[in-house]
Design a protein around this nucleic acid. Structure first.
Length: 257
DNA sequence: GCCCAGGGTGTTT
DNA sequence: AAACACCATGGG
Protein backbone atom coordinates (compact mmCIF):
# COMPACT_ATOMS: atom_id res chain seq x y z
CA UNK A 1 0.00 0.00 0.00
CA UNK A 2 1.78 3.11 -1.23
CA UNK A 3 1.45 6.38 0.62
CA UNK A 4 1.35 8.82 -2.29
CA UNK A 5 -1.14 11.07 -0.54
CA UNK A 6 1.52 11.93 2.03
CA UNK A 7 4.03 13.18 -0.54
CA UNK A 8 4.59 16.89 -1.13
CA UNK A 9 6.87 17.39 -4.11
CA UNK A 10 7.89 20.97 -3.41
CA UNK A 11 8.77 20.43 0.23
CA UNK A 12 10.55 17.12 -0.38
CA UNK A 13 12.62 18.29 -3.35
CA UNK A 14 13.48 21.73 -1.99
CA UNK A 15 14.45 20.53 1.49
CA UNK A 16 18.12 20.30 0.57
CA UNK A 17 18.50 16.54 0.15
CA UNK A 18 18.74 16.43 -3.65
CA UNK A 19 20.08 18.88 -6.20
CA UNK A 20 18.77 17.91 -9.64
CA UNK A 21 15.23 19.16 -9.95
CA UNK A 22 13.41 22.09 -11.47
CA UNK A 23 9.97 23.67 -11.46
CA UNK A 24 8.04 25.10 -14.38
CA UNK A 25 4.37 26.05 -14.40
CA UNK A 26 3.30 23.73 -11.57
CA UNK A 27 5.34 20.84 -12.94
CA UNK A 28 8.25 19.41 -11.00
CA UNK A 29 10.99 17.65 -12.93
CA UNK A 30 13.37 15.33 -11.11
CA UNK A 31 16.47 13.82 -12.67
CA UNK A 32 18.51 11.20 -10.88
CA UNK A 33 20.78 8.28 -11.50
CA UNK A 34 24.28 7.76 -12.77
CA UNK A 35 25.57 7.64 -16.35
CA UNK A 36 23.31 5.48 -18.56
CA UNK A 37 20.94 4.75 -15.68
CA UNK A 38 19.56 8.28 -15.71
CA UNK A 39 15.86 8.60 -14.86
CA UNK A 40 13.65 11.63 -15.28
CA UNK A 41 10.15 12.32 -13.98
CA UNK A 42 7.90 15.31 -14.59
CA UNK A 43 4.75 15.54 -12.50
CA UNK A 44 2.52 18.12 -10.84
CA UNK A 45 1.41 17.99 -7.24
CA UNK A 46 -2.21 17.36 -8.19
CA UNK A 47 -1.14 14.32 -10.23
CA UNK A 48 1.22 12.96 -7.60
CA UNK A 49 -0.82 9.74 -7.49
CA UNK A 50 0.59 8.87 -10.94
CA UNK A 51 3.91 8.08 -9.26
CA UNK A 52 2.36 4.87 -7.91
CA UNK A 53 2.48 3.48 -11.47
CA UNK A 54 6.23 4.04 -11.68
CA UNK A 55 8.19 1.42 -9.75
CA UNK A 56 11.43 3.38 -9.79
CA UNK A 57 10.05 6.68 -8.55
CA UNK A 58 7.72 5.01 -6.04
CA UNK A 59 10.85 3.75 -4.38
CA UNK A 60 12.72 7.01 -4.98
CA UNK A 61 10.09 8.92 -2.99
CA UNK A 62 10.06 6.18 -0.32
CA UNK A 63 6.36 5.54 -0.89
CA UNK A 64 6.53 1.95 0.36
CA UNK A 65 7.13 3.29 3.86
CA UNK A 66 4.38 4.73 6.05
CA UNK A 67 5.62 7.76 8.03
CA UNK A 68 2.50 8.19 10.15
CA UNK A 69 3.64 6.24 13.22
CA UNK A 70 7.02 7.94 13.14
CA UNK A 71 5.36 11.38 12.99
CA UNK A 72 3.17 10.51 15.98
CA UNK A 73 6.30 9.64 17.93
CA UNK A 74 7.92 12.92 16.84
CA UNK A 75 4.91 14.88 18.11
CA UNK A 76 5.33 13.30 21.54
CA UNK A 77 9.05 14.03 21.69
CA UNK A 78 8.93 17.83 21.37
CA UNK A 79 6.47 20.61 20.56
CA UNK A 80 9.09 22.22 18.32
CA UNK A 81 9.54 19.04 16.33
CA UNK A 82 5.78 18.63 16.23
CA UNK A 83 5.48 22.12 14.73
CA UNK A 84 8.17 21.36 12.16
CA UNK A 85 6.34 18.20 11.08
CA UNK A 86 3.02 20.05 10.85
CA UNK A 87 4.68 22.83 8.84
CA UNK A 88 5.64 20.44 6.00
CA UNK A 89 4.25 16.96 6.67
CA UNK A 90 4.77 15.90 3.06
CA UNK A 91 8.56 15.71 3.32
CA UNK A 92 10.01 12.23 2.79
CA UNK A 93 13.59 10.95 2.75
CA UNK A 94 14.47 10.10 -0.85
CA UNK A 95 16.17 6.88 -1.91
CA UNK A 96 18.93 8.42 -4.00
CA UNK A 97 21.81 6.68 -5.70
CA UNK A 98 24.48 6.31 -3.04
CA UNK A 99 27.33 7.59 -5.18
CA UNK A 100 25.38 10.59 -6.45
CA UNK A 101 24.41 11.53 -2.90
CA UNK A 102 27.93 11.12 -1.54
CA UNK A 103 29.48 13.17 -4.35
CA UNK A 104 26.76 15.83 -4.12
CA UNK A 105 27.37 16.41 -0.43
CA UNK A 106 31.11 16.68 -0.93
CA UNK A 107 30.20 19.52 -3.29
CA UNK A 108 27.93 21.00 -0.61
CA UNK A 109 30.57 21.89 1.96
CA UNK A 110 30.79 25.58 2.85
CA UNK A 111 28.42 26.21 -0.07
CA UNK A 112 24.80 27.20 -0.61
CA UNK A 113 22.04 25.17 -2.20
CA UNK A 114 21.59 27.35 -5.28
CA UNK A 115 25.29 27.21 -6.10
CA UNK A 116 25.49 23.47 -5.33
CA UNK A 117 22.74 22.88 -7.89
CA UNK A 118 24.60 24.92 -10.50
CA UNK A 119 27.87 23.08 -9.96
CA UNK A 120 26.19 19.65 -10.13
CA UNK A 121 24.33 20.66 -13.29
CA UNK A 122 27.62 21.64 -14.91
CA UNK A 123 29.25 18.40 -13.71
CA UNK A 124 26.56 16.34 -15.42
CA UNK A 125 26.66 18.23 -18.70
CA UNK A 126 30.44 18.33 -18.81
CA UNK A 127 31.19 14.69 -17.94
CA UNK A 128 28.26 12.72 -19.41
CA UNK A 129 26.45 12.59 -22.74
CA UNK A 130 22.88 12.06 -21.56
CA UNK A 131 22.57 14.29 -18.50
CA UNK A 132 23.22 11.47 -16.04
CA UNK A 133 25.41 11.99 -13.02
CA UNK A 134 29.08 11.25 -13.80
CA UNK A 135 30.36 7.91 -12.53
CA UNK A 136 33.03 7.61 -9.86
CA UNK A 137 35.37 6.21 -12.53
CA UNK A 138 34.85 9.28 -14.68
CA UNK A 139 35.53 11.76 -11.90
CA UNK A 140 38.45 9.72 -10.56
CA UNK A 141 40.05 10.22 -13.96
CA UNK A 142 39.17 13.89 -14.32
CA UNK A 143 41.84 16.55 -13.94
CA UNK A 144 41.66 18.83 -10.94
CA UNK A 145 41.64 21.82 -13.25
CA UNK A 146 38.64 20.49 -15.18
CA UNK A 147 36.73 20.35 -11.90
CA UNK A 148 37.82 23.81 -10.82
CA UNK A 149 36.63 25.10 -14.19
CA UNK A 150 33.01 24.34 -13.24
CA UNK A 151 33.28 26.17 -9.92
CA UNK A 152 34.29 23.48 -7.44
CA UNK A 153 37.16 25.52 -6.04
CA UNK A 154 38.99 23.87 -3.13
CA UNK A 155 36.51 20.96 -3.29
CA UNK A 156 37.97 19.68 -6.55
CA UNK A 157 40.65 17.55 -4.89
CA UNK A 158 38.09 16.24 -2.39
CA UNK A 159 35.90 15.07 -5.27
CA UNK A 160 38.84 13.27 -6.86
CA UNK A 161 39.78 11.64 -3.54
CA UNK A 162 36.22 10.43 -3.00
CA UNK A 163 35.72 9.25 -6.58
CA UNK A 164 39.02 7.36 -6.49
CA UNK A 165 38.12 5.55 -3.26
CA UNK A 166 34.77 4.45 -4.74
CA UNK A 167 36.21 3.56 -8.15
CA UNK A 168 39.05 1.40 -6.81
CA UNK A 169 36.89 -0.34 -4.21
CA UNK A 170 38.51 1.21 -1.14
CA UNK A 171 35.07 2.50 -0.20
CA UNK A 172 32.19 0.03 -0.73
CA UNK A 173 28.96 2.02 -0.86
CA UNK A 174 26.79 -1.11 -0.68
CA UNK A 175 28.48 -2.06 2.58
CA UNK A 176 27.52 1.34 4.03
CA UNK A 177 23.84 0.40 3.69
CA UNK A 178 24.06 -2.39 6.25
CA UNK A 179 27.20 -1.96 8.36
CA UNK A 180 27.27 -0.58 11.89
CA UNK A 181 26.64 3.14 11.65
CA UNK A 182 29.80 4.24 13.42
CA UNK A 183 31.85 2.03 11.15
CA UNK A 184 30.18 3.68 8.17
CA UNK A 185 31.07 7.10 9.49
CA UNK A 186 34.63 6.00 10.11
CA UNK A 187 35.04 4.57 6.60
CA UNK A 188 33.69 7.72 4.99
CA UNK A 189 35.75 10.07 7.16
CA UNK A 190 38.95 8.21 6.31
CA UNK A 191 38.75 10.03 2.95
CA UNK A 192 40.43 13.42 2.94
CA UNK A 193 37.66 15.93 2.34
CA UNK A 194 34.86 14.06 4.14
CA UNK A 195 34.06 15.10 7.70
CA UNK A 196 31.24 14.19 10.08
CA UNK A 197 28.56 16.31 8.41
CA UNK A 198 29.14 15.07 4.86
CA UNK A 199 29.46 11.50 6.16
CA UNK A 200 26.05 11.72 7.85
CA UNK A 201 24.49 13.21 4.69
CA UNK A 202 25.90 10.38 2.59
CA UNK A 203 24.54 7.81 5.03
CA UNK A 204 21.12 9.42 5.48
CA UNK A 205 20.39 10.53 1.92
CA UNK A 206 22.41 7.97 -0.04
CA UNK A 207 22.18 4.85 2.14
CA UNK A 208 18.80 5.51 3.81
CA UNK A 209 20.37 5.27 7.27
CA UNK A 210 17.57 7.12 9.07
CA UNK A 211 19.38 7.38 12.40
CA UNK A 212 22.05 9.72 10.99
CA UNK A 213 21.71 13.40 11.87
CA UNK A 214 23.68 15.81 9.66
CA UNK A 215 24.68 18.82 11.78
CA UNK A 216 25.07 21.80 9.47
CA UNK A 217 24.91 25.50 10.41
CA UNK A 218 21.10 25.49 10.36
CA UNK A 219 20.76 22.45 12.59
CA UNK A 220 23.29 23.96 15.00
CA UNK A 221 20.96 26.97 15.23
CA UNK A 222 17.96 24.72 15.87
CA UNK A 223 19.78 22.81 18.60
CA UNK A 224 21.23 25.88 20.34
CA UNK A 225 17.94 27.81 20.27
CA UNK A 226 15.36 25.09 20.97
CA UNK A 227 17.30 22.18 22.49
CA UNK A 228 20.16 23.76 24.48
CA UNK A 229 22.40 21.29 26.24
CA UNK A 230 20.77 18.34 24.49
CA UNK A 231 21.93 16.21 21.58
CA UNK A 232 20.21 14.61 18.61
CA UNK A 233 19.63 11.28 20.32
CA UNK A 234 16.53 12.78 21.97
CA UNK A 235 14.85 12.38 18.55
CA UNK A 236 15.08 8.60 18.67
CA UNK A 237 15.93 5.93 16.10
CA UNK A 238 14.67 8.04 13.18
CA UNK A 239 16.54 11.19 14.17
CA UNK A 240 17.58 11.76 10.56
CA UNK A 241 13.96 12.13 9.47
CA UNK A 242 13.31 14.52 12.37
CA UNK A 243 16.38 16.44 11.26
CA UNK A 244 14.89 16.88 7.77
CA UNK A 245 11.63 18.35 9.09
CA UNK A 246 13.55 20.68 11.42
CA UNK A 247 16.01 21.74 8.71
CA UNK A 248 13.29 22.67 6.23
CA UNK A 249 11.26 24.42 8.92
CA UNK A 250 14.05 26.59 10.34
CA UNK A 251 15.19 27.67 6.87
CA UNK A 252 11.79 28.65 5.52
CA UNK A 253 9.27 29.39 8.29
CA UNK A 254 10.62 32.88 8.99
CA UNK A 255 11.33 32.67 12.73
CA UNK A 256 14.97 33.68 12.26
CA UNK A 257 14.21 36.67 10.05
C1' DG B 1 33.95 46.28 0.96
C1' DC B 2 31.68 42.73 4.25
C1' DC B 3 29.28 38.30 5.64
C1' DC B 4 27.31 33.91 4.55
C1' DA B 5 26.60 29.27 2.55
C1' DG B 6 23.64 21.65 4.26
C1' DG B 7 32.39 22.12 6.18
C1' DG B 8 36.95 20.26 6.44
C1' DT B 9 41.90 20.54 7.16
C1' DG B 10 45.85 22.05 9.39
C1' DT B 11 47.94 24.96 12.97
C1' DT B 12 48.17 27.24 17.17
C1' DT B 13 46.87 27.88 21.91
C1' DA C 1 40.20 19.90 22.94
C1' DA C 2 39.12 24.19 21.68
C1' DA C 3 39.98 28.24 18.90
C1' DC C 4 41.56 29.95 14.73
C1' DA C 5 42.99 30.86 9.72
C1' DC C 6 42.37 29.26 5.40
C1' DC C 7 40.18 27.40 1.55
C1' DA C 8 37.02 29.25 -3.96
C1' DT C 9 32.99 31.24 -5.33
C1' DG C 10 28.77 33.90 -5.90
C1' DG C 11 24.81 36.26 -3.78
C1' DG C 12 22.92 39.53 -0.51
Amino acid sequence: MLKTEDLNLKDTLSSGQCFRFSNREENWTVTCGVAGNVKTLTVSQNRVCDIENDAFFSHYFDLENDYSEMKKDFAKISPVLSAAVSYAPGIRILNQDSWEALCSFVVSQNNNIKRIMGIISRMCSKFTENGGFPTADTLAGASEQSLKDIGLGFRASYIINTATAVADGTLNLEYLKTCKIDEGRRLLMSIKGIGPKVADCALLFGCHRLDCFPMDVWMKRVMSIYFPGQDYTIFGPYAGVAQQYLFHWIRTCGVLK
